[in-house]
Design a protein around this nucleic acid. Structure first.
Length: 577
RNA sequence: CGGGGCGUAGCGUAGUGGCUAGCGCGCCUGCUUUGGGAGCAGGAGACCGCGGGUUCGAGUCCCGCCGCCCCGACCA
């Protein structure tokens, strides 16, 4: 039994000055964590309990789906990471250190290399597969900017698992099992989350989904359909496009003098003055960037998006991956006379041998107002497929609330989320790097394929806190509450030690109990109980004179009184649902 | 790395160049109090981030450094 009189806990009456987001504020105020360095936190007794309870749910679901737990060191030699290329690829985000002999070590940011070499060392037959191994481990990433308390730390607890399969079909099965296990896990943790399609990344073609806890403090932006179950990271979303139009429906292209109109807003105003009533959505904004391809080649690229939308560089980059997007600078304009800054139009790009891609919103046959490739001049009725022909399409425009869902056409909505899980069909990147083969049925070596799956355990604690709090404090879901019940003894009414007896009996019946036996003023006890956030609070106080106690529901904010002798049964019923 | 803000006791904070750096919370002692962060009395606790400078005098002004928080860049 935890007793408030001796529990290592100091709650704060005021918000810590350096905490802004609710989870950070409340976890510090309620005495769950303390900061040691940026992105590095100490877990105090109540915090450890929540962390352990989250980890317990994660382990149970991993075990249920057939995973086997192992534990790697966090301190790792350079060798394996050198072999995979990540010793350098990981850049400044990797904590590197040396031992006394000058040997290079690192603090593991993730363990693909270690799991791959472990399996390679132990297994060598197709009969051994599939296998799923996992660990719950402390990871280290020297983030450029840790933020929001434990939400984005440099040291954090993560469950990472890896599946090893003989072929792509096996990988799909392992992936599906993880997906189910994650759904069960996050359901049990009482989280409001979405599974969103993620960018497949440089590996190409690999399925990847993120589990996002819906929260305004989240760092990821995602869209979800208001009527079907489509959801995607904004970078990965494919917005439904309108139907193609007939170029013949539009009048001939016409060039107009539009002096001093380098921006969409100035252009629209100028055209209105000339009697052309076109809104920004009818203009074509042509943004120039440079692409750097993996082979080092750099090429200019012009991307056309409707003028009422910003270009989403992250989305563009995700869709031109593995090429990188670089800004097109003044010097680049100087060396490319075909591109007139502020007045770029696609009409001349083919002749200038500059690649032109359009966002799918720029449908074939549609007419636009766009630059005439001369300072101070724009052209109207510039028709796609007649006056210019894009090389192809690339999703690059910012996605907006209400854009059509690619699956059902209903409106999409935009929300933010905290990435609490990521499942990824990794493929053979690491098994190739480490030549992980097993002997197949035919006696020939088969290259193993991998999946990689993560759950941010410590981040989940913060994400739950983000979702489960009110103005009084935390409101833990039962599955992760530091204890099952918080027994509060207030005032001098309990001369018989009733609170103590009830707490003991609850513990004997298998519950974890926190007893506030401090005997201070009732206000303090009540405020602390609300701040700590245990979902069930049993108050033993003045109603005891009538043989009654009070059972409170922290989440609902309700309470009911009941006879003392029914207290234990009522709490048990409450906790065990 | 760019932009912004801030460093005063465990926490939150006040402090025109001029008394011994103030207040609230928390902490300690005693008495009172006990259903919504109690009252009274007494106490402990500060290298005012660090270094240099200006000045008769610096928490306060100047220069440099360090650290922290927020926004952005970054984040298999």
């Amino acid at each position: 039994m935890l007793r408030m009189s001796t529990l290592f806990l100091r709650t704060l009456r005021e918000d810590p000055a350096d905490a802004e987001v609710p989870s950070h504020r409340l976890l510090v105020r309620a005495g769950y964590v303390r900061r040691v360095a940026p992105g590095i936190y100490t877990w105090l007794p109540l915090g450890v309990r929540v962390l352990e309870r989250v980890a317990r749910v994660v382990r149970q679901e991993m075990d249920r789906m057939g995973g086997q737990e192992v534990l790697f060191p966090a301190l790792l030699p350079r060798e394996a990471y050198e072999k995979s290329g990540r010793w350098t690829e990981y850049g400044d985000n990797l904590f590197r250190l040396k031992d006394r002999k000058g040997g290079d070590y690192l603090l593991g940011p993730t363990h693909e290399e270690m799991f791959t070499t472990l399996v390679k060392g132990e297994y060598s037959s197709y009969k051994d597969l599939p296998v799923v191994l996992y660990q719950v481990q402390t990871k280290y990433r020297d983030e450029a900017r840790p933020r929001a308390g434990v939400l984005r730390g440099r040291e954090f607890v993560m469950k990472d698992s890896y599946s090893f399969d003989l072929d792509d079909e096996g990988l799909r099965v392992s992936y599906a099992k993880h997906r189910d296990a994650y759904i069960r896990t996050f359901d049990r943790l009482g989280m409001d989350y979405r599974i969103v399609a993620a960018v497949s990344g440089a590996m190409g073609g690999s399925a990847s989904e993120e589990f996002l806890a819906v929260s305004p403090t989240g760092e990821d932006t995602f869209v979800s359909c208001t009527s079907c179950d489509y959801a995607a990271n904004t970078e990965a979303v494919q917005v439904g496009a309108a139907a193609a139009q007939d170029p013949a429906d539009h009048p001939a292209m016409q060039v107009l003098d539009t002096p001093d109109t380098p921006t969409i807003a100035t252009l629209v105003a100028d055209l209105r003055g000339k009697g052309h009533d076109v809104g920004p959505e009818r203009t074509l904004k042509n943004v120039v960037v440079k692409l750097r391809h993996p082979d080092g080649r750099i090429e200019p690229l012009v991307v056309g998006v409707p003028g009422d939308r910003e270009i989403d560089l992250k989305r563009l980059e995700a869709n031109v991956s593995p090429a990188e997007v670089l800004p097109f600078e003044a010097a680049d304009f100087a060396s490319t006379p075909a591109l007139v800054k502020g007045y770029i139009g696609p009409q001349v790009l083919a002749d200038a041998k500059i690649r032109f891609l359009v966002d799918p919103l720029v449908v074939p046959g549609s007419a636009w107002v766009t630059g005439a490739n001369e300072p101070g001049k724009h052209a109207v009725n510039v028709v796609s497929g007649r006056d210019f022909t894009p090389v192809g399409t690339v999703p690059a425009a910012e996605v907006r609330d209400g854009d059509p869902c690619p699956r059902c056409g209903s409106g999409l909505r935009i929300d933010r989320g905290i990435e609490i899980g990521h499942i990824f069909q990794l493929g053979r990147k690491y098994t190739d790097a480490f030549s992980l083969d097993v002997l197949g049925r035919e006696g020939k070596p088969v290259r193993v394929t991998m999946g990689s799956y993560g759950i941010g355990v410590s981040r989940a604690v913060a994400a739950i806190a983000e979702q489960a709090h009110d103005d009084k404090g935390l409101v833990w879901p039962r599955s992760v509450s530091p204890v099952d019940v918080h027994v509060v003894r207030v005032g001098k009414f309990d001369t018989e030690g009733v609170a103590e007896r009830i707490a003991t009996e609850l513990e004997e019946r298998g519950l974890e109990v926190l007893l506030d036996d401090r005997g201070g003023s009732p206000g303090v006890a009540f405020k602390d109980a609300e701040l700590l956030g245990v979902p069930t609070i049993l108050v033993v106080g003045k109603a005891l004179a009538d043989g009654l106690v009070e059972l409170r529901d922290r989440a609902a904010g309700t309470s009911r009184t009941l006879p003392v002798e029914e207290a234990v049964a009522a709490v048990l019923a409450e906790v065990r649902g």
